[in-house]
């Protein structure tokens, strides 16, 4: 080996060292950030899977005792079952309404150029720059007048107002992703507009539509303010937990929190593929 060779190989070694060091640093940072997200969720699960006595004991154990005391306590607490049912029903209604109303509008935005299209788009985009839960205030009065106050249907309508703009934008981008040529091809092969949509477009956008439906479900499931303002007897889980924050024992709050979190985890997992497509389009 000549001196030059050694110099070359030394040069080769140093950047590799440097690179592997920075790779370790990056891996460590990523791990810390993952823990930052995951540990709090783990801790609420520890609380939920401990007995109510353990939850208030000192110092706290960092591992669950797998005592179902908290869970049974929560499940049997007055009003919880009903609130849970309300949450599910309102979220399902929101899901159906926002897709039912949003998807046709999304299709129109994606496929046609027509006068008024931009006005509509702007109104939809405007809803994002607007603190929507506040709309619950005037709507509360309107609902009393038309007999929708304190109903699941009424709350679902307000939640639809939160979720529908997203459904419109998301479905519009889904439909834009399906080449118009495919529909035209179907027309030349004997379809009318409707059958072409059902036989060609629908099967292709179905997974995306399902994802945006899940999105609508989660928006409703998580909504607190409008639910608390608009319901008294028909409280959803979030509204129920919010209004009982003062008096309820800790074990109830923690179990309730965990029950709120869990479906969101699964749903998010189901739509993870579409997450970025959905928010990517929110930029336009």
């Amino acid at each position: 080996m000549t001196a030059a060779d050694i110099a070359v190989s030394a040069k080769k070694v140093r950047p590799t060292d440097h690179r592997s060091a920075s790779r370790w640093l990056m891996a460590a940072t990523i791990t810390i950030l993952c823990l930052w997200v995951l540990v709090p969720i783990y801790l609420i699960l520890v609380n939920t899977l401990s007995s109510p006595e353990e939850v208030t004991s000192w110092p706290r154990q960092f591992f669950p005792s797998f005592d179902l005391g908290s869970v049974t306590f929560f499940a049997n607490y007055q009003g919880v079952a009903r609130a849970l049912l309300n949450s599910v029903i309102v979220a399902v209604m929101t899901m159906v309404f926002s897709i039912g109303l949003g998807a046709p509008a999304g299709y129109a935005l994606a496929r046609f150029d027509f006068p008024g299209k931009n006005v509509f788009r702007v109104v939809v985009l405007m809803t994002r720059a607007f603190p929507l839960p506040l709309l619950a205030l005037p709507l509360a009065i309107m609902f009393i007048q038309i007999g929708l106050d304190d109903t699941r249907f009424g709350l679902a309508l307000v939640h639809t107002m939160l979720a529908m703009p997203f459904a419109i934008l998301i479905t519009a981008s889904l439909f834009m992703g399906i080449p118009y040529e495919l529909e035209e091809a179907a027309w030349t092969l004997g379809c009318n507009r409707f059958t072409a949509f059902v036989k060609v477009v629908l099967p292709l956008v179905m997974p995306g539509i399902a994802a945006s439906a899940v999105f609508a479900f989660v928006i409703s499931w998580n909504e607190v303010f409008a639910a608390a303002v608009l319901t008294i007897q028909n409280r959803t889980l979030t509204a129920f937990l919010l209004t009982s924050l003062n008096e309820a024992p800790l074990a109830l709050k923690f179990a309730g929190g965990a029950v709120l979190v869990l479906p969101a985890l699964f749903f998010l997992f189901a739509v993870r593929k579409y997450l970025f497509a959905m928010w990517g389009i929110a930029n336009r």
Binding site: E181, L182, A185, A186, W187, T188, C191, N192, P203
Partner: peptide
């Protein structure tokens, strides 16, 4: 007449083969 009633068939530039 709509395309389906014209007794035509068409080959598209991007083929428009239905992916599903």
């Amino acid at each position: 007449l709509p395309p389906r009633s014209r007794e035509i068939a068409m080959v598209f530039q991007n083929y428009a083969v239905f992916p599903h």
